[in-house]
């Protein structure tokens, strides 16, 4: 085997140490720092991007919560407004109703009193007519001259009893 010839040992070992040494210094001081630098930068970039994404997600979540809260508030406010308005309107309607019904009652009372007055007057007129008719009939038939006052009194008495009997 040519490998076992001692003459080949020395030159190979010498050049091995020289060239391996050069490669070692090249890798230690140039290649490896460059590679680890790139790897670290990439790692940092990924970590930074992930952090950013997380922050943005948190922000979005906060915005969503705020939106939901404001929506809830708005819904609540709307319910309160509707309730208040309904009560207000109910009170207004009640008041209006009261006013209207008072007015109508007053009108009805007035009308009633007018009716009563008219009825009274009409009854009075009927009595006068009845008294005159009565006087005329008596003077015509019996030739008697009756005192109008007595007749009117008698009629009033009679109508009262009739009214009483009827009622």
């Amino acid at each position: 085997m040519p490998q076992l010839d001692p003459a080949v040992f020395m030159p190979q070992i010498f050049w091995l140490f020289v060239i391996f040494g050069v490669l070692y210094f090249f890798i230690t001081y140039s290649a490896a720092p460059k590679i680890s630098d790139v790897l670290k930068k990439r790692q940092d970039k990924i970590a930074y991007d992930l952090g950013e994404a997380e922050a943005l997600q948190a922000k979005a979540e906060a915005a969503r919560l705020a939106y939901e809260k404001s929506q809830e508030e708005a819904r609540h406010n709307a319910a309160v407004v509707v309730l208040n308005k309904r009560e207000e309107l109910k009170a207004y309607a009640d008041a209006e109703y009261q006013k209207l019904s008072d007015g109508l009652n007053a009108k009805a009372d007035e009308a009633q009193s007018r009716i009563d007055a008219a009825k009274e007057k009409a009854l009075g007129d009927v009595r006068t007519v009845a008294t005159e008719v009565c006087c005329d009939i008596v003077s015509h038939i019996a030739g008697l001259k009756l005192d109008k006052k007595d007749v009117s009194k008698a009629i009033a008495k009679k109508t009262e009893t009739i009214g009483k009997g009827k009622s």
Binding site: P11, Q12, F14, I19, F20, V22, I27
Partner: peptide
């Protein structure tokens, strides 16, 4: 000491250059 630049050293140099 014999430190001749041999075909073995040449291969080492080639390895260094390739890396």
């Amino acid at each position: 000491y014999d430190i001749s630049f041999t075909n073995s050293a040449g291969a080492m140099l080639a390895t260094l250059v390739v890396i």
